[in-house]
Design a protein around this nucleic acid. Structure first.
Lengths: 230, 230, 230, 230
DNA sequence: GATGAATGAGACTTCATTCAT
DNA sequence: GATGAATGAAGTCTCATTCAT
């Protein structure tokens, strides 16, 4: 049995399916390269704007100015404001998943991988408050389409956690439990901890909370001892 | 020592201080009664509108129509759209706190009270999806002022949980732990579970999840056995 | 020949015709007296409001509050905001004319009466900046009906001046001239001098300007010497 | 000594400083030219609307329709309705000053220049009743910001007159006098004469009044004989 | 007569999106 | 492809006026 395979396959798949906005980076002609750059510049500009002023209070001109392009140009890359935000969410979800996959690959054992995932997710958001704001605050309730995207990200994360948990149960590492509840609890816990961090504005404090967070999480799912989960 | 006293005092205070929008219900003259009724009608209309179409997609006309009054009338009761939403949040927070206080009064022991609080909170939202949508989705990121109000509600809830936890630790019912993290975890867990329920649309399923949710929560905080927590 | 008679007859007529808003003050029953008082209270409140915030920026509620009555009550005394302003202008014109008539009665000779009129008009406005603001600034361009009223006041004043001038010409006190121009010049001169005073905000300076103003005016109409105009 | 220099320097300065809305007309690229045209079209449309319906009764849509553009376009050129009016006043003041400067350049001697200024100012307004309405009626009391602009125009005109008068006094052409009063009297006289013209609606009559007006003005300031003022 | 809550038409302004250059 | 001027629909809020109490 290859511990952790299940999740990682899904994540890799998830990562590449997202929506084709990032068509890989090899073999680009000059033109495609320029397009790629602009695409990312606009996406980042949108990230800045949305995280600073919020989705509804940001205008397409805000985004264009930050990206150093004209308003019309934004529409050459994205069909509209809503789609731009959806793409931005995709982009951020990608980055998050990428970092998590990488973190998982460095440890062995389902529970270690789960812990690494959680720790990494928290760290990513701790390191980038704008991203956190966008995903946790600005995207929520912004529009039906955006909500849907956000829900799909939440669902994806919960499913990944659930998969790890299922594997852990199968391996006898944790007791049987309502996996749906447990996975949501883990996601929601991370959500709220990061949110608290965003609100207080205490700078690096989140990093320090990671051990306590992991302790709590492992206790919650019934893992004997997180310090030696393997 | 009177278990649970600390929290309940705070909650009652919180409840009554909120912001004076509901000046009590006894001894109202005809006019004051009419005003009270209209106030609530508009608040409920706002609840309907905001939960259905979202804050930014609802117009003051939507609210007025649902309340059966003219647009100008809404402005006789609330200074503006944002203030209307803030009042609505206050109102909903009040209701939630009231239900929780009541539920707590029916059981003995800190952990039982904590469990009753969580169960009740989840049930309130399960019974009223609109309220849940407003508080958990539509209010998030709606505007700086609304965000602030929402944050104050989150903080209040987390503090209440933290107070129970502290008491439980002091009484030796649960081991020492990072109470900040634990309280946030509990709030976030409820948040995500309710959110999942909102998204799926499975009607009464949330009720059924309460036992599993409580099991998980008590495990997370290290309570020996939730069925007999004292 | 009775110098000055012509004008004074007209003024007295003008005063009583204005528009019947002040139905005399003798023989009022208690009810009529109360009505009279409220009428004046509202008129004065309107004067305060309009001179402070301007016609368009004053609301009927502003007026009602200052008058110490309810909004609806204002409508019991005046058919609407515009009519209220028109009545206010009438009222102020009345006061001005009354003061002028009184000043004229104290001197002999057309030119002396003309000089006394001008001096008195300037003094009235100097003493009451609000009145000046209303007549010279806030009423201008406020609405077609108000404009018309204002024009009628201007015309009345110009006609009165013209009548004095005509008499002076007939009496050989001043040379023949375009009386229409001369009378307008006199009115406009007063207008601008008072306006300058309103703008600068120099308190009592206007009083001091009266002699220079009269000198200029008498020079303008060709009177030999204002100090001994007869 | 170069008679009239003082005033003309000031006027030219005043003219060019006004507020940069008309950035000169030479060397415009196609785009700048188009912008300039639109700017003027909107300004003229505003002039039409404001002079016809008054400031408060004109809507931005009125202005846009008359200019043949969309409402939003107006906001590309002016930050708001009030600023639009202020710009319009600037524009009209510019035109007036330009015409006056030109008229002054055609005669020699302070008093001749003063007379030419007055005559030209009256003629400009006589030829363009809309402009006159805007400056003399609609702008008055329209809003604090507009009032301020209007006051600055009044002050500018009075100062220019005062400068001429001072020069005339220095040259011994007129006797010493209260120059502040005299200059205001001249401005006010013109004001009222033009206003009377606006109200009667007698078409070309104003032109005919100019000689009588000048006679009066020169008499007022004590100039020996206006037909040969030098 | 007096009140003031209710009305609803209407204004200003914003901003996502389009399209001629 | 890129630009950014132009568009115009839509939203919030104000306030003169009415009318039930």
């Amino acid at each position: 049995m290859v511990p952790g395979r299940g999740v990682d396959e899904v994540m890799t798949k998830a990562q590449s399916h997202v929506n084709g906005v990032l068509p890989g980076e090899e073999g680009l002609s000059g033109k495609e390269l320029r397009r790629q750059e602009r695409f990312l510049a606009i996406l980042e500009a949108a990230g800045e704007a949305f995280s600073t002023k919020g989705y509804h209070r940001s205008t397409m001109e805000d985004v264009a100015l930050r990206a150093g392009v004209a308003v019309g140009t934004v529409y050459l890359y994205f069909p509209g404001k809503e789609a731009l935000f959806v793409s931005l969410l995709d982009h951020l979800a990608q980055q998050l998943l990428g970092a998590v996959v990488e973190a998982r690959s460095r440890v062995q054992g389902v529970l270690a991988k789960l812990g690494a995932s959680i720790a990494q997710a928290v760290r990513v958001f701790a390191a980038n408050r704008s991203q956190a704001r966008i995903v946790l605050i600005e995207a929520v309730g912004a529009s039906p389409a955006i909500d849907e995207k956000l829900a799909s990200i939440h669902t994806l994360l919960a499913e990944l956690v659930e998969r790890d948990l299922r594997e852990a149960v199968e391996e006898g590492l944790i007791p049987g439990q309502d996996l749906d509840i447990s996975s949501k609890a883990l996601v929601g816990t991370c959500y709220e901890v990061i949110l608290g961090h965003l609100r207080d504005g205490r700078p690096a404090s989140l990093e320090g909370s990671v051990p306590a967070l992991l302790d709590l999480v492992f206790r919650a799912i019934g893992a004997a001892n997180r310090r030696d989960p393997q």
